[in-house]
Structure formats: structure tokens, C-alpha cells
């Protein structure tokens, strides 16, 4: 079979179907991963001793367990205690937990980097602690966390491929199925890899634009650190 025919008539249409699933996995996981990250970081930094300890333990457990094992627990393990999830749902939950735990580390670092004086000043202006966190600390912290969070987003794109291991036929899975059917492995996985490289490169460019867009004039990362 002609290589061009294989790539354009067989491989790419199959990969497009897989790509749609990959994008769905990412779109469903990323916002909740960010929200979880913000929640866990805030709880760890500003919560009481119990909440803070619970958030810390959560991060420790998730970071210590391979994501693939977490997916196995959610998809193969949970039915034994009466909770049956579809493979897609199990994947999304796994990605949210993992992405959230890693995001929380960057956000916590950024929260710590905002000087104490800001909280004192905000409270002196009559804000409650929660208002100060929401309106003064968090907007600065999230901007500083963008590089780390974008790294985690790129990891999410790549690790979404693990969903295939629990039967979700996303981009890698679509490639694997075609490769196995036609016994064409190297070319197929190179093309699959290029699609991931394109996704990762687009993300990197988009994040750079976002970072410039949300930048507050005069508050660069270096000048903010001096406040």
C-alpha cells in the first residue's frame, strides 16, 4: 500500500476521531483540575489545622501513586464497592484528581510568594479574610502560577493518552488500533506523536499570549516580588 494513501486515507481520519475524544478528555478535566488546585492550595495555606493537613495528605497520596494505577482503581476497583463509572468518566475523574494535586503545589507556591503585608493591608481596609484572599491575594498568585499551571496543562494533554489503558479510544488508542490492523507501527506512532507535538506547541504559544494579556502593567514578576 502506498504510504501517502495509508497516512491520508486511513490513518488521519481515524486519528481525527481519537483527537476529538482526547480534546473532550482535556476540556472536561482542565477546568475542574484548576478549581481543585485552587481549592486545595487555599485550604492548605489558609485552612485550619485539620483542613490543611487533609489537603496536604491528598496531594501526597495522589503524587505518590502512578496515574495509571489511579485510573485502574477508579475503573476496575470501584465497581467492587458498588460504584460503576464509564471508562470516560473514570478517566476524567482521574485526570482531575491528578491535575488538581499538581496544580495546587504551584498555586500554593504563588500564594506564599504574595507578601503578608498585602493581607494585613486588605484587612485594614475592612475586607474579611475570605474577601482578601479572593480579591487581593488570589488574582496576584494565579498570575504568578501561570508558567507552572501551563506546564501541568501540557502534562494533562500527554497523560490523557493513559485513558486508552482503560479502554477509552482516544488519540493514542486510535493510532494503536490502526497500527495493529495494518501492521504499520513506526509511521503510525510517529504521526500520532506529531499530533501531540502540535497540541503541545499550540498550548505553549497560547499560554504566552494569555500571560501577556492578563499581565497588570507595572506588576511584572520581578517588580511584584519586591512589593
Amino acid at each position: 500500500m502506498d504510504q501517502a494513501v495509508f497516512i491520508f486515507d486511513i490513518l488521519l481520519p481515524a486519528l481525527m476521531q481519537g483527537l476529538v475524544i482526547t480534546l473532550q478528555l482535556i476540556v472536561f478535566s482542565a477546568p475542574f483540575g484548576l478549581a481543585l488546585g485552587i481549592g486545595v492550595a487555599t485550604g492548605r495555606q489558609y485552612g485550619g489545622p485539620i483542613l490543611s493537613r487533609a489537603c496536604k495528605t491528598f496531594v501526597l497520596l495522589i503524587k505518590g501513586t502512578p496515574l495509571l494505577l489511579l485510573l485502574f482503581i477508579l475503573y476496575f476497583g470501584l465497581p467492587s464497592i458498588g460504584i460503576t463509572l464509564s471508562a470516560f468518566t473514570a478517566s476524567v475523574i482521574g485526570f482531575i484528581l491528578c491535575n488538581g494535586a499538581y496544580n495546587s503545589e504551584y498555586i500554593r507556591g504563588a500564594l506564599i510568594s504574595v507578601k503578608d503585608g498585602q493581607m494585613i493591608a486588605a484587612q485594614a481596609l475592612g475586607m474579611t479574610r475570605a474577601q482578601a484572599i479572593r480579591n487581593v491575594i488570589m488574582p496576584q498568585a494565579l498570575r504568578r502560577a501561570i508558567p507552572g499551571l501551563s506546564n501541568e496543562f501540557i502534562y494533562l494533554i500527554k497523560y490523557s493518552s493513559l485513558a486508552y489503558m482503560i479502554t477509552v479510544v482516544e488519540l493514542s488508542g486510535a493510532g494503536k488500533n490502526v497500527a495493529t490492523k495494518y501492521f504499520i507501527y513506526t509511521e503510525t506512532f510517529m504521526v500520532v506523536g506529531i499530533v501531540y507535538l502540535v497540541l503541545v506547541t499550540i498550548t505553549t504559544v497560547a499560554v504566552n499570549i494569555l500571560e501577556k494579556r492578563v499581565a497588570v502593567p507595572g506588576m511584572s514578576r520581578t517588580s511584584a516580588a519586591q512589593l
Binding site: Y164, G175, F189, M190, G193, Y196
Partner: peptide, 18 residues
Amino acid sequence: GLPILVLLFLFWFGIFPG
């Protein structure tokens, strides 16, 4: 840029046998 899963498939099924 490539997921570890894709790299493993690429080398295990493609490059090493190739």
C-alpha cells in the same frame, strides 16, 4: 513533547523490531 505511552508503543512495536 510525546506522551510516554506513545514513545513506548513507537519503540516497542516500531523502532526496535524495525
